[in-house]
Computed example of a mutant assay.
Amino acid sequence: MIEMVIEQRRRSLGGGLDVGRVLPFAKRRMVGPFIFFDHIGPIDIGPGVGREVDVRPHPHIGLSTVTYLYSGEMMHRDSLGYEQVVRPQEVNWMTAGSGITHSERLEKARAVGDHLHGIQAWVALPTQDEETAPAFAHYEGGDLPAWRDQGVRGHLIAGDAYGLTATARTHSPLFYVHLDLEPGASAEIPSGHSERAVYVASGQVELGGQRLVAGQMAVLSHQASSVHATSPSNVMVLGGEPVGERFLYWNFVSSSRDRLRQAAEDWKAGRMKLPDGDALEFTPLPDDARITPSATS
């Protein structure tokens, strides 16, 4: 039932803010179209924290970023002019397409302190949509299809699952779900997609007789059918259809190596617009950035 278990690896975003990076993994770069999966926190941030903890303006192409929080707040600003706070059980869905820049600020934490905990995922766009016009959408808690059933509280973030359809516009078949499980509760895992995974953000669950704890992602076989909580647990269930090989270069995703190189040159040359109010700050392209394939290495 479980093909592989991936442990999160700690990665610094600079300024003292670390994430638990799950995807890409050397032996499993993607699950369906999901090509990045970062676990933010949980972390307590005291009031007066410096701006160095913010995620400074940086660019993307060829993907959608999906930010979902369990607690805390983040302020999104982008080069389309959107400025939007994301709070628990809300979704910021930004489609980079042909190119966008954005920043993520911890303004609430700076003012009064905060307990930050959530997930940011990247969804690779299918080849025909890689150069689509950039876009941004925000979905409040009431916009997300939700349900309760025998110790399970669910929120459908994107796609189709459990007989429900989310509002977020997607470009390929996928599903993305948050399950809040009480001890002893069980939940079915959506079927009908060729690739699926379960990530434990907090707590402990059992799947096919195997224990999973916080920070672990189980990549599933077609036989996997349900997850059972042995403690209060927050679980993300995700999957979909592959979109083909993708190359990654820093914050860029594309089916073309040449397109990645062009995006990097555009960023270094200052040809990508920065979010309003962020013009004096930007994230430089790392000196050690290299192109990596999405295929298993």
Score class of each variant (00 low, 15 high):
Ser186Glu: 11
His178Val: 06
Gly209Tyr: 10
Leu212Phe: 06
Ala185Asn: 13
Gln204Glu: 15
Ala197Arg: 01
His222Tyr: 12
Glu182Ala: 15
Met217His: 00
Ala187Ile: 01
Leu207Ala: 04
Gly209Leu: 09
Ser194Val: 15
Glu206Asp: 07
Asp180Gly: 12
Leu220Ser: 04
Ala185Ser: 13
Tyr199Gly: 00
Ser221His: 13
Ser221Trp: 09
Gln223Lys: 15
Pro183Met: 06
Ala197Lys: 00
Ser191Asp: 14
Gly184Cys: 12
Leu179Phe: 10
Val200Asn: 00
Val177Ser: 04
Leu181His: 07
Ile189Asp: 06
Pro183Phe: 12
Glu188Met: 14
Gly192Glu: 13
Val200Gly: 00
Ala187Asn: 06
Val205Asp: 03
Gln210Trp: 09
Leu181Thr: 01
Tyr176Phe: 15
Ala201Gly: 12
Ser191Cys: 08
Gln223Met: 14
Leu212Ala: 07
Phe175Tyr: 11
Leu207Trp: 02
Leu207Pro: 00
Ser221Cys: 04
Gly208Glu: 07
Ile189Arg: 03
Leu220Ile: 06
Ser202Lys: 09
Gln204His: 07
Ile189Trp: 09
Ser202Leu: 08
Ser202Ala: 13
Gly209Asp: 02
Arg211Glu: 15
Arg211Lys: 15
Gln210Arg: 14
Val200Phe: 02
Gln204Met: 14
Val200Cys: 02
Ser221Tyr: 03
Val198Glu: 00
Gln216Pro: 05
Ala185Tyr: 11
Pro183Leu: 10
Ser194Thr: 15
Leu174Gly: 00
Ser186Pro: 11
Gln210Ser: 09
Ser194Gly: 12
Gly184Leu: 08
Arg211His: 09
Val205Thr: 10
Gly209Arg: 08
His222Glu: 15
Glu206Cys: 05
Pro183Tyr: 13
Glu206Trp: 03
Ser202Tyr: 08
Leu179Tyr: 03
Arg196Ala: 09
Ile189Met: 07
Ala187Lys: 05
Phe175Asp: 01
Pro190Phe: 12
Val177Trp: 01
Val200Ala: 00
Ser186Ala: 15
Ala218Asp: 08
Gly208Ile: 00
Glu188Leu: 15
Ser194Phe: 10
